[in-house]
Nucleic acid binder design. Structure first.
Lengths: 158, 158
DNA sequence: CCACTAGGTTCCATTTTAGAACTAACTTGA
DNA sequence: TCAAGTTAGTTCTAAAATGGAACCTAGTGG
């Protein structure tokens, strides 16, 4: 299976990863959430080659995860901003960061700590049920075939 | 910057991605959560080359995200099981899946739907504050320098 | 005029990957 | 007993992706 075919699988994880399942894209998005907007800033912050960076930014714009907006004319310059679709990736980044904080801190504690403006406490993120609000235990979540998988099956072997 | 150096950055997202920020590893872990345990099942389910699969499984075992356990002797065969560290990746997979369900369903609806055994409702996952339990809005989370970043800075330029 | 900034693009050597074929150590059925 | 099947890999090679340096374009500041 080639990477380019992965987005056709009837799996939301595979489809999401077809866009940012590579070395650098999620680091670019992490930077977006901490306020980085310009080409050179991304490059210095992340340390990837300009070549790759240009490529990834273009891809993110194509997928409408970032939007290019001019911030000056003469010479015309753009900055990259998260769209709604991009902001929606916040839970992915935060759960990744929490896992890294827990398992990869090298004994030094988390690189960043977070405060919740609403309740003013130092916080971490938790995964909760949209219906009862309780914290999720993986064993208590039962996956069932949904409409997307049914539609796919009927197309593949009708 | 080479990929091999990424895990040394003082960033939990980068460190986490140094293990599974590639094309296939998160798909292997997704399969683990739906009960896949054996080499051939992974290969058929995901469609990556046997070569890559062997490589990724070895890496996941080295990082103690999976554990190899014999399920028969003569010939000796192992299966791969999630460790505690691996199970802790559940929120990452579920938030990825939710994003894919929302933005990449191709109009067919989600491939899988989930029921919460505890409350018996069809559910999605939400990101909540560990302290006040309210749903997280990215704008209300304030990151501050933590001990991990301080320790790193004092090592790099003391 | 010269250096500098910002945002790329081009080129090429090195790395990584995909896919097919091969191996090893058994088990099963005819 | 012997061929075929199962499971879990490993080896090989061509093709694709990557990293890094140099170059380009369109300005600004001195």
């Amino acid at each position: 299976m080639k990477w380019d075919n992965i987005q056709e699988l009837p799996c939301s994880v595979a489809r999401a990863l077809s866009i940012f399942g590579d070395r650098w894209t999620l680091l670019i998005l992490r930077d977006c959430f901490i306020g980085v907007k310009r080409f050179d800033k991304f490059q210095k912050s992340i340390g990837l080659s300009r070549h790759r960076l240009a490529d990834r930014l273009t891809k993110l714009v194509e997928h409408e995860i970032l939007r290019k907006e001019p911030y000056q004319e003469k010479p015309l310059r753009y900055e990259y901003k998260l769209t709604r679709k991009g902001v929606d990736l916040y839970p992915v980044l935060m759960t990744l960061a929490k896992w890294g904080d827990t398992w990869m801190d090298g004994g030094d504690g988390p690189p960043l700590e977070y405060t919740h403006a609403k309740c003013q406490h130092k916080m971490t993120v938790e995964l909760c049920c949209s219906e009862c609000g309780e914290e999720i235990n993986p064993k208590e979540v039962i996956p069932k075939v949904g409409p997307g998988l049914k539609a796919y099956s009927s197309r593949v072997k009708p």
